[in-house]
Amino acid sequence: MSDLLVDGLSGLLLALGCLFMVSGAVGLLRFPDFYTRMHAAGVTDTLATFLIVCALMLQAGWSLALFKLGLILLFIFFTSPAASHALAKAAQHSPLRLEPVAEQGADEAFPEPGQGTEIAEPALEADAANADRA
């Protein structure tokens, strides 16, 4: 009886996890710019992973596998925000740079075109060239 319950529960968690995961991946394709795609990737990284690993934990029962799954979960939860932040931070050094005013997306590539001095010019050109290559 309890076996049936555990199996049913773990199947339910797996199904929910798949749903969230596919939704996140669809968002990754559908959303219009880099930062919004990052939010969609967050869905697959947090809740979807959590649900699937929890379902596996239910199937593992009390064993070493349970502990290892817990470690995997803990590790993904600790590294995923660090990787997201590193990604957003790196994008700040590119033409995708965000401006802190509330505005649509990240289409404002160069913040102060009026103040472009001789020192800043080559850097801006390098950036533009970089954007073309990417």
């Binding site: 919004t36 809740l47 505005e103």
Partner: peptide, 26 residues
């Protein structure tokens, strides 16, 4: 909190890009 915001984002994904309003602020 994570569960709630996940559901919000998934709803936004299926509604399509028209339902989102990306903002950034300090």
């Amino acid at each position: 909190k994570i569960v709630r915001s996940n559901i919000d984002v998934v709803i936004n994904v299926w509604r399509g890009p028209a339902s989102i309003s990306p903002v950034s602020a300090r």
